[in-house]
Simulated assay, not measured.
Amino acid sequence: MSIYDFSATSINGSDKPLADYKGKVVLIVNTAGRCGFSYQYEDLQRLYNRYREKDFIILGFPCNQFDNQEPDSNEQIQTSCLLNYGVDFPLFKKMDVRGESAHPIFKYLSTTKPFEGFNKFHPVAKILLPLITEKHPEYLTDDYSIKWNFTKFLIDKNGQVIKRFECTTDPIDMEQDIERLLT
């Protein structure tokens, strides 16, 4: 099994088989526009600009499951991402990424690479960890589910999940892992 066995609905409403990305290094990210990690959109776009000509693609999947941080419509999300962060990598229709209603691609991704913990020294973690512990302790009861916005999965050119990065890993800190897969 690989990511190529799945499809998702693009933000403009068309069905998009992930097999269309065969031969590319793919970074799949669940996003939210009103999250403390939303600044990562800018760094994701920088990575995309730097490596897009080398068969690298980022796929953004907006989600509103984490503290209502993506309440906007798909059209508003697309406009906001472009105007505020210059995002021009592919975005998909807003979806659930955890729980029974999670999209199949996120069920696959999260069971393939388990949660390895947050970087407790990340500046936003000082806000995130108490929030999750107090308001959403159920998020931390298993080793596989998506814990928050901006969880990232790095996929090789064969569609295999290579690495999972939590929200407390900034996109630029993934650059060496991306470069290794591109060579």
Rank of each mutant, 00 (worst) to 15 (best):
Y108E: 13
Q40H: 01
F106H: 00
P104N: 07
T111A: 12
I77A: 13
A125H: 12
K54I: 03
C35E: 03
H122M: 07
E116K: 11
A125V: 10
L82S: 12
Y51S: 05
F61Q: 11
L59A: 05
I58Y: 13
I77L: 15
P104S: 09
R98Q: 02
K107E: 15
R46V: 04
V87T: 05
I57V: 14
K94M: 12
H103D: 12
K126Y: 15
L91A: 01
S80H: 13
T79L: 15
P90A: 06
N64H: 13
I58P: 08
L91D: 05
Q69K: 09
F61H: 10
G117T: 03
N119G: 06
G99C: 04
D67R: 06
H122Q: 05
D43A: 11
N64L: 15
Y108L: 15
H103R: 05
K93W: 05
F66Q: 13
V87C: 05
I58E: 11
D43E: 15
S110W: 00
T79Y: 10
A125N: 10
T79S: 13
T112W: 02
L83M: 11
S101W: 03
C35L: 02
I58Q: 07
H122G: 07
C63N: 05
F106L: 01
K54A: 12
N74M: 06
K94R: 04
T79R: 14
K107W: 08
H103G: 06
L44K: 01
F89N: 00
Y41A: 01
N68S: 14
K126F: 15
N119R: 09
S38P: 00
V87Y: 08
E42H: 06
K126N: 13
G86Q: 03
V97P: 08
V124H: 07
F37H: 00
N68H: 14
E53P: 06
F61E: 11
F121K: 11
I58L: 13
T79P: 05
Q78G: 10
L59I: 04
F106S: 00
Y108Q: 08
F121M: 10
C81P: 04
S80T: 11
Y48N: 02
N119Y: 08
E116L: 14
G36P: 02
